[in-house]
């Protein structure tokens, strides 16, 4: 895995979305909204950005007569998130090793 800073993922709301989606296969939009404590429009906007980058897949399904939206990180999204987290760790690690010198 390549450690690479990703400007699409880095803004806090999108980082939070990716971190949660990386831990599951799929998550309900309403559940994610409740976890992040943000409005529907704010979450939609960030999800749209991630979807346009090819990092998040959006699927709508009807359950018990109501429509639910399921979100999942794509394999490109998982790779990008893992690479971004590795880049963050490398940055912090670099600071630690310089401080130790």
């Amino acid at each position: 895995m390549k450690a690479e800073f990703d400007p699409v993922i880095h803004p806090p709301p999108r980082l939070q979305i990716c971190a949660r989606l990386a831990a599951v296969e799929t998550m309900d939009f309403a559940t994610l909204r409740e976890m992040l404590d943000v409005s529907e429009s704010v979450l939609s906007k960030h999800v749209k950005t991630l979807e346009e980058a090819g990092y998040v897949a959006v699927r709508k399904a009807t359950s018990d007569g109501r429509q639910r939206t399921w979100l999942a990180l794509t394999s490109a999204g998982r790779k990008a998130f893992a690479g971004h987290a590795a880049a963050l760790r490398a940055l912090v690690g670099g600071a630690d090793s310089r401080a130790a010198e």
């Binding site: 880095h10 806090p12 971190a19 940055l91 600071a95």
Partner: peptide, 12 residues
Amino acid sequence: SLEALNQIAAAN
């Protein structure tokens, strides 16, 4: 970076 890593850890 540290702040972002802390956010990831909290999400986990």
